[in-house]
Amino acid sequence: MSSVFNVQFWAYVGVIAGIYGILAYSLQLQHGFCGLLNFGQVAFMALSGYTMAILVVKAGLGLWAASAAGLAVAGVFGVLMGIPTLRLRADYFAIVTIAVGEIVEYLASNMTSLTGGAAGSINLLGPQNAASYDGAWQDAVSRVQSWLGHAIGSAATATVATMAVVWVLLVLVALAVWFLVRSPWGRVLQAIRDDEDAAAATGKNVFRFKLQVLAVGGVIAGLAGLLFAFESATISPTDYDPTITFYAWTILVLAGTTSIAGVPLASVVFGILFAGVLFFTFPPFSYLGSADRSYLQLMIVGAALILLMRLRPQGLLGNRQEMLLG
């Protein structure tokens, strides 16, 4: 357990929060700007992470080429998922996506010969031969680390460098979302969000736009999945647990579903809240065992979600008046 003042620890929290933030942007594009309730976004992370790992380890592809393939697979999966589900009513869609999230994790654990099974990507070459895929990533991070070293000296550890990379990517994603949303294409998405029938009545092919936004959102989520994989050196199905989707939803709701600037802020708040519970080492929490304390941690996260919905459903930067317009 780390101290509250450990920079490394907080840099690590920053890495994870940034990745969740990127995932939250994918949800923001789909929900905040197109009205889709996608509760299975983790599936896209898993697909791109696994595609990348498998291509590097089994097909000997370079890391960056494999990553591009991973993003492409995530995008294509958005279309594949959309075809049977988007014709459904919005509420059916929401519930089916919950299932999609779980099924992908489930397949990753069970298709051992393809994914390495429950042991994860380290098992891709079989039990005796620990597989690794992230050499090129490590190189890139150490290059960033040495640049950073010029600026901030010895504080520039690998974790800090990773955090810098993740947050730069987060800002790029934010800019992309911002550009898309205020373009005429994004205007159509928002029209669909506000009134699907009226959008169809103005000649917009609602189905096609939704497929596109599932694909684009899938690619953004895929990026989060890749970063997850890079950062942890080996991935296993539980790394892409369906609850991750809900953490990203928490960030989005905290930010305000249409507030692009709110997402980074909410990611930071979420990271502090989530990791902060680890420091409940004072009484009465100090009387609890570590298992009990981890149960308590998630209970507090849950309670925070409930309170947030109760007190500020529009999020930190959202606009309640606008949220209620109908």
């Binding site: 029209a191 969000r193 506000d194 009134d195 009226a198 009545a201 000649g203 249409t258 317009l325």
Partner: peptide, 13 residues
């Protein structure tokens, strides 16, 4: 092109 009886607009645009 048609309009709707209860006037459907894109409320948040």
């Amino acid at each position: 092109v048609r309009t709707f009886q209860r006037g459907r607009v894109f409320a948040r645009l």
